[in-house]
Structure formats: structure tokens, C-alpha cells
Design a protein around this nucleic acid. Structure first.
Lengths: 206, 206
DNA sequence: TAGATTGTTAATCGATTAACAATC
DNA sequence: TAGATTGTTAATCGATTAACAATC
């Protein structure tokens, strides 16, 4: 097995993947490091450096072939497979996530939606029906799910997290404000648009 | 005026802000660098180093006072004011964002929602009514808005972006998959949960 | 006092960037 | 050929970490 990527390299490669996916959809056959730089705010030299560590994917004077580079990065990141994820919360945010086309594009399927509110269990969201959180263990094992998304209010976020972890989930994407306590072998990624915004404002205002 | 923060420092301080905000809500009076480290995945030494660059905020053997540290970081990031933001898109994601409590907590108000779909104009979302995108310039100037959030499908994302920029918006948070073309003085932050997920999976699988 | 945790140093490592030869 | 863009070097800067004295 090749060396494990550093956190920084893996993060940047993911960004390139995102840009290439869209560039392909827009019908761009070729793309230069300069163009990728404009869309990612990552320095063009850094991009070429990152890529050339794995091979000579570009053509001087021309750029990179979008499709080929996409495949190379997928190989490096080993993200060619299909992945099932579980969603906790069938409210507004949960529904938005379940119906978003953004996951399918990268081989990710929202394979189950869970709710603790009995009123919502059985309702349809997107093309799925909402499951009771009590069935989380059975369903996650059956569908081979190790990624869970928390789209419930802060008050119930820890309960939803505990339930998912009990069902074998190892990666949690937290869209609530709550700070989640998890065992050491579970990874939490917390998203907070408000905090990202304060950060962006700092650079705008100074 | 003090030195401008580096990108890395500003990003980390924002994360501390997020943790402190929640810790305060949970009634924690004091917090140690070790505790902040657990919630942010940032090394505890780095946290103390970041903070001590601006003053001696902690007490040896005790930790930091949550409330006081929160205020210090707000001062450093200059995010004590109130900010109005505009939202493009009154669909599922737009509604979720408009009704989220996550912004108010940091002094951010969704001050206007815009739609190009005439069917949706005038409808109520949260405690606001949806405006026509044709009125974006007038409303953004009136409400002093320089931040816009794109919560429309990829197909109309560029149009929504152009409208917001025409109205004076300088910071765009893009929740669509589209790559947005913007003038040099406008900053785009694109969020893609699917890409973040691939990145998280890489470290889980290797 | 004993235990805990900060503030700071010193050393290392990775990120960033400009510059430019190679080459398409 | 002329123009463009990669691949690579070299130099600098910031991030990361262990270690530990200071001190609450």
C-alpha cells in the first residue's frame, strides 16, 4: 500500500475532485492548474505539486484532461466505491439533505432516515420512508452503514449520535450546534455555517 | 490596528469560538485547552499557543474562563457586531437555513429571502415573506447586506449569484454544486458535504 | 503541599511561493 | 516557431509537537 496521505493533501485532492466533477458536467475536456486555482483558492503551483507527486498527469502547454485527472484522484483517494449513509432527522434540514443530488454524484446514497418522533415515522421523504430510531442497529448493519449525518436540533443531537454509534457508525457529520461526546474510535465533523461566515467576514473587514 | 491574522489562525480561532459558545450554553464556567482540543481535533499545545499570542487569558492549573475567553476571541476576530445576510432560494434547503437557530447565536440575521420562481414569491418562510429576485438590489442596499447564501439548484446558481453581486454582495456561500464565476473582489465559499465525506472516508479506510 | 494546566521554548515538518527550464 | 502550461527546484514561512518550568 502506498503512503497514507497527509491531512492537507487529502483535503486539497478532495477539492480538486469537486471542481473536476463540475468541470466535466460543463463539458470541459481540459483544465489547467490555473483554472482549478481560481475555483478552489488554492495556489496553482501547489496544485501542480500535489498532482505531480503521484505521476505526470498533465501535458505541458495544454493542461490536464478532466476525465483522466478525475479518475486518477479517485484512485489516490480510493473513493471509487459506493457508500451508504444514514441520516438522523426528517425535519427541514434532513429532507433537504435526503433530496439533494449532491451525494449521488459522488457515489454516496442516503440509505436510511431515522426519527425519534413517532409522528414522523413512516412518512415519506424523497423516495424513502422514515424509520424509527429504534430500528437503527438492524438497518445500519443490514445496509453496511458506517457514516451518519446528524440533522436534528441540538437538544436531541447527542441521543441520535449515541444511537448511531450503537449501530456501528464510525463517522458522524454533525449539522447541529451541539458538541458531541463520542468514543475515541469515532470521528466527528461539525459544520457550522455561522462560524464559517464570521471567519469569511474577518478577511473581508480587515 | 493590530496585525492581520493568518488564514490558519483565524480559522482556528473561529473553531474555538464555536466550542466556547456551546460550552457556555452547557453551563461550563471553565474549560481547558485539552477539552477544546477534544472537540476541535486541534492539538492542545497549538490552542494555548494561538491564545497566548494575544494575551494571558488562562490560569495555570485551572484553565480558561469560558465567558471571558469567548469575549477575547470575539474581539480578536472583530465579530461583535450584527450582520444581515441574504438567502437565495426558498426551497427545502433555503427553508432549513432560514429557520435555523445556528445564525442568531452568532449575531447573524437572515434578513431577506429571494426567489426567481413567481409561485414562491410572497410565501412565508420562517417569519419572513419571500421576495422576488428582481428586488434584490433595493433590499440589499436598504438592509446593508454584503453576504449572500446560494441555496438554489445548480442550474440557477450562477443567475442567483449574478443578481446578488449586482446588489453589492461581496461574500457568497455556495451550497449548490455549481462552480461560480465571480469578479475578483467577491469571495466564494463552496460547501460540499459529499466531498467532505469522501475525505473523511479516506482516513477511515486507510 | 500535590496535582493540574498554562505559557513558552526549541526542534521538526509540511505548506507556500516564485522562478524557470522542459516541452507540448 | 511562438505561446502556453507543466513539472521541479530552492527558499521561506507557518504549523505542529514534545517537553517542561512556572504557577494556580
Amino acid at each position: 500500500m502506498a503512503e497514507r496521505l497527509t491531512v492537507g493533501v487529502a483535503a486539497r485532492l478532495s477539492r480538486y475532485l469537486q471542481v473536476l466533477t463540475q468541470a466535466r458536467k460543463m463539458g470541459k475536456d481540459r483544465i489547467s492548474s490555473q483554472e482549478i486555482a481560481e475555483y478552489t483558492n488554492i495556489n496553482a503551483t501547489q496544485i501542480r505539486r500535489d498532482l505531480s507527486a503521484f505521476g505526470r498527469f498533465g501535458k505541458r502547454g495544454v493542461g490536464y484532461r478532466t476525465e483522466a485527472l478525475l479518475e486518477e484522484i479517485r484512485k489516490i483517494l480510493r473513493t471509487q466505491g459506493q457508500h451508504n449513509i444514514a441520516l438522523a432527522g426528517a425535519g427541514r434540514l434532513g429532507s433537504a439533505i435526503a433530496s439533494s443530488p449532491i451525494f449521488a454524484e459522488h457515489g454516496i446514497t442516503v440509505a436510511a432516515i431515522f426519527e425519534s418522533d413517532p409522528e414522523k415515522v413512516g412518512q415519506r421523504v424523497g423516495n424513502m420512508s422514515v424509520n424509527s430510531i429504534d430500528d437503527v442497529a438492524e438497518i445500519c448493519r443490514e445496509r453496511n452503514i458506517i457514516v451518519g449525518v446528524i440533522a436534528v436540533p441540538a437538544e436531541t443531537a447527542q441521543d441520535a449520535t449515541d444511537a448511531l454509534i450503537g449501530a456501528g457508525v464510525k463517522i458522524i457529520f454533525n449539522y447541529s450546534q451541539a458538541l458531541l461526546d463520542v468514543p475515541a474510535d469515532v470521528n466527528v465533523h461539525t459544520s457550522n455555517p455561522a462560524v464559517d461566515l464570521l471567519y469569511a467576514l474577518y478577511f473581508h473587514l480587515t
